[in-house]
Design a binder for these strands. Structure first.
Length: 572
DNA sequence: GCCGTTTTCGGCCCGACTGTTTTCAGTCG
C-alpha cells in the first residue's frame, strides 16, 4: 500500500496534538504542525520526490529529524515515535481537542484526573458534575463544554463556500444598513475563497462601537451569543455557522483586514519579515517602536514591510511571500476575464432549462460563447444522449445560432470515459462537435495505477478537448479518486488538452494546488460552470476564486480566450 | 523541531475575551 502525503500529514498532526497535551515545547509542536501542512499542500507525493533523488530537507520546515520520520513512514507505513506516544496517551484523546473551549491543558487535566479519553466519557462526567470540581474548571466551563461537545456530535463543521457566501453576504448587508456604520468587509477564509469555510469574519468601522456590537448580536439570524466585548464579538447563526466581528478604528482598518483575512501561516510569515526589519506588527498596524508607520490600508501595511499587496487568495504561505519579495507575484485571472463557458447542460439531459434560456443567461453573465455539453448515453440516470439525439441537438443549435446575437452556442458533449479508457460514443460522432469534454462518472474505486491509466488512455484520443472535474470529488461527500495527477497533467500538456476547473460549489475540481501544478507544467485550465440551470453561471466566481488560489493568470485559462482564439486552439 | 546576509544557539506572532486563579491561565483566531 503506497503511502501518500495525507498519511504523513495525519501522523504529524497527531504527534503535534499528543505533544501539545503532554505540555511539550510549543515551538516543537508547531514544527510538526507546519511540516504536516506543508506536506499536505505539496501536490507531488513525497515518495515521488524521494525517487527523483530530491532531499526531503529541501522541503521548508523539514529538518534532519522529520526527514528521517518521513522516510520511516514511507517505507514502513508507520511511525515508531507516534506509537511510543500512544503508550503514554490514548489515541482517541486528540478528538477532545476538536471541542471548542478544550485545549491541550484542559484535555490533559481531564485525562490525568478523570481518565476521560472520548466524547462520550466527557459528556458522562459532565452529567455527574465531576468536571466543575477540577482545578481551573468551574460550573460555567462545564456547561460550555457540554454544549460544545453536543454540537460537535450533531453537526458538520465546515460550510461549502457558496453556502457560506449566502450567510456572510446577508450578514454583511445587515451590518452595512446600520446607523453610523462606515464600512464592512468579509475577511477570513471566505475572502481567501477557500472551498469550505469554518466560520465567517466581519470587519467593521463604526462611529459608535457599542451600537455596532448591538446590531451584530441582535441580527435576526443569531441563535446564540458566544462573546461580546467592546471590539470583538462572536455569535452562532441558526444555520449553525459561527460569525465573528471586529470593530476597528479607521487608522487600523487595513492592518485588521490583513490580520483577519489570514491565513495564520501567511500572517506569521509576514510578521517575521516585519520583525526582521525591527518593526512590530499586529491588527492595529505596523509599528516602529510606539509609532504607527502603516495601518489604514492593506497596501500601506504590506508596503511598510517592503512587499507589494498580495491578493487574499494567495495568502496561504505557499510561496506568495517569497514571490512578493522577488517581485514575481502572478497577475491573477479575474471573473471579467472569462469569455465563455465550455461545460453546461440543458433539459435534453439532466439540466433544467432550454438551450435558448441557457444561452441568454450565459450572455447576461457577460460571456460570448457557451458550450452545451450533455451527458452521453451510458449515464442513463441523467438521460444521456446517444448519437442520434446528439446530431439532432446539433441541428437545433445551428438554428438557434442563426437568430442569437452576441452569444454563440457551441456543440459539445460531456462524454463518459469508460472503464477501459475508451469513450462512450463513436469517435466519428464526437469529431464533428466543437468541444468534447471527457469525464469519469463510474468506477471511482479503481486502484491508482488503473484509474490513472484509464484517464491517460482517454486523453490519447485526439477528439478530446477538456478533461472534466479531474478528481471526481464532491466536497465533504466523496473523496477524490486515486490518480497520479502529475502524469495526467503532463499528458494533457503533451496532447494540448485542457484540464477543467469545475466551478460547481460541490466540486471546485481541479483543486487549487493542482492548478498551480498545471501552470508549472504548462497545461491549460478551463474554468467551467457545469451549469444545470440558468442561475448557475453565477457559480463561475467560485471557480475563478479557486483558480486564483491556484495562481492562475489569464494566459493559463482556456476560456479567457476569444471564440476565434479558442477555435484556433482546437484546430491545433 | 527548525532555522541562520548579525546567529550552529536562542530565538520562534500577538492581542482579546472568558471564567475563575483576587492577578492570570487557557483558549481562540
Amino acid at each position: 500500500m503506497p503511502v501518500h502525503n495525507a498519511t504523513i500529514e495525519a501522523i504529524f498532526d497527531e504527534i503535534a496534538d499528543l505533544l501539545d497535551i503532554q505540555g511539550a515545547n510549543p515551538f516543537r509542536v508547531r514544527a510538526y504542525r507546519n511540516a504536516a501542512r506543508t506536506i499536505g499542500d505539496l501536490g507531488t507525493d513525497v515518495k515521488a520526490l524521494m525517487d527523483q533523488g530530491t532531499a526531503l530537507t529541501d522541503i521548508p520546515g523539514v529538518g534532519d529529524d522529520l526527514a528521517k520520520k518521513i522516510e520511516e513512514i514511507v517505507s514502513t507505513g508507520k511511525c515508531e515515535f507516534l506509537e511510543r506516544l500512544h503508550k503514554q496517551l490514548p489515541p482517541a484523546i486528540t478528538d477532545l481537542l476538536k471541542i471548542p473551549g478544550l485545549g491541550p491543558k484542559r484535555v490533559k487535566v481531564l485525562w490525568r484526573d478523570l481518565k476521560i479519553q472520548t466524547l462520550e466519557q466527557l459528556l458522562e462526567a459532565a452529567r455527574e458534575g465531576r468536571i466543575q470540581e477540577l482545578p481551573g474548571f468551574g460550573e460555567k466551563t462545564e456547561e460550555k463544554i457540554v454544549e460544545a461537545a453536543q454540537a460537535h456530535l450533531s453537526q458538520t463543521h465546515r460550510f461549502k463556500l457558496a453556502v457560506a457566501a449566502q450567510y456572510a453576504e446577508g450578514f454583511a448587508a445587515h451590518m452595512r444598513r446600520g446607523r453610523g456604520i462606515e464600512r464592512v468587509d468579509i475577511a477570513g477564509s471566505f475572502r481567501r475563497m477557500r472551498e469550505t469555510v469554518g466560520d465567517i469574519d466581519l470587519i467593521v468601522i463604526a462611529r459608535d462601537a457599542g451600537q455596532a456590537m448591538g446590531r451584530f448580536t441582535s441580527y435576526e439570524e443569531v441563535k446564540e451569543i458566544l462573546a461580546s466585548g467592546p471590539t470583538r464579538g462572536s455569535v452562532v447563526l441558526k444555520a449553525g455557522i459561527q460569525v465573528d466581528v471586529r470593530i476597528i478604528p479607521k487608522e487600523s482598518y487595513g492592518a485588521a483586514l490583513v490580520y483577519f483575512t489570514g491565513s495564520k501561516a501567511h500572517n506569521i510569515a509576514i510578521r517575521r519579515i516585519a520583525q526582521d526589519k525591527g518593526f512590530k506588527m499586529n491588527e492595529y498596524g505596523v509599528f516602529d517602536g510606539d509609532r504607527r508607520i502603516a495601518g489604514e490600508t492593506e497596501e500601506s501595511v504590506y508596503g511598510a514591510i517592503g512587499l507589494p499587496w498580495i491578493a487574499p487568495e494567495l495568502r496561504e504561505d505557499r510561496g506568495e511571500v517569497e514571490a512578493a519579495l522577488a517581485g514575481t507575484l502572478p497577475q491573477l485571472i479575474e471573473l471579467s476575464d472569462l469569455r465563455g463557458d465550455l461545460h453546461a447542460h440543458s433539459k435534453a439531459s439532466d439540466g433544467h432549462n432550454t438551450i435558448r434560456e441557457m444561452a441568454k443567461a450565459a450572455q447576461a453573465a457577460g460571456l460570448e460563447y457557451v458550450a452545451i455539453t450533455e451527458h452521453s448515453r451510458r449515464l442513463t440516470v441523467a438521460r444521456g444522449l446517444d448519437a442520434i439525439r446528439l446530431v439532432k441537438q446539433g441541428g437545433e443549435i445551428d438554428r438557434l445560432n442563426r437568430e442569437l446575437d452576441g452569444i454563440t452556442v457551441l456543440k459539445g458533449i460531456e462524454v463518459d470515459i469508460l472503464e477501459d479508457g475508451t469513450l462512450d460514443l463513436p469517435d466519428s460522432v464526437l469529431a464533428r462537435l466543437d468541444v468534447v469534454v471527457a469525464a469519469v462518472h463510474s468506477r471511482f474505486d479503481l486502484p491508482r495505477a488503473k484509474q490513472t491509466q484509464r484517464i491517460l488512455a482517454a486523453l490519447d484520443n485526439p477528439v478530446v478537448a477538456i478533461l472534466a472535474h479531474p478528481f471526481g470529488r464532491l466536497i465533504e461527500q466523496r473523496e477524490p479518486y486515486d490518480v497520479d495527477m502529475q502524469k495526467i497533467i503532463r499528458k494533457a500538456k503533451a496532447k494540448k488538452i485542457a484540464l477543467e476547473l469545475n466551478a460547481h460549489p460541490e466540486r471546485l475540481d481541479l483543486l487549487d494546488i493542482y492548478c498551480q501544478m498545471a501552470k508549472q507544467e504548462g497545461a491549460l485550465v478551463s474554468i467551467n460552470s457545469d451549469a444545470h440551470s440558468t442561475y448557475e453561471f453565477g457559480m463561475l466566481r467560485f471557480g475563478v476564486g479557486q483558480a486564483r488560489r491556484g495562481w492562475l493568470e489569464k494566459k493559463d485559462v482556456l476560456n479567457a480566450r476569444s471564440l476565434k482564439e479558442l477555435r484556433a486552439w482546437r484546430s491545433k
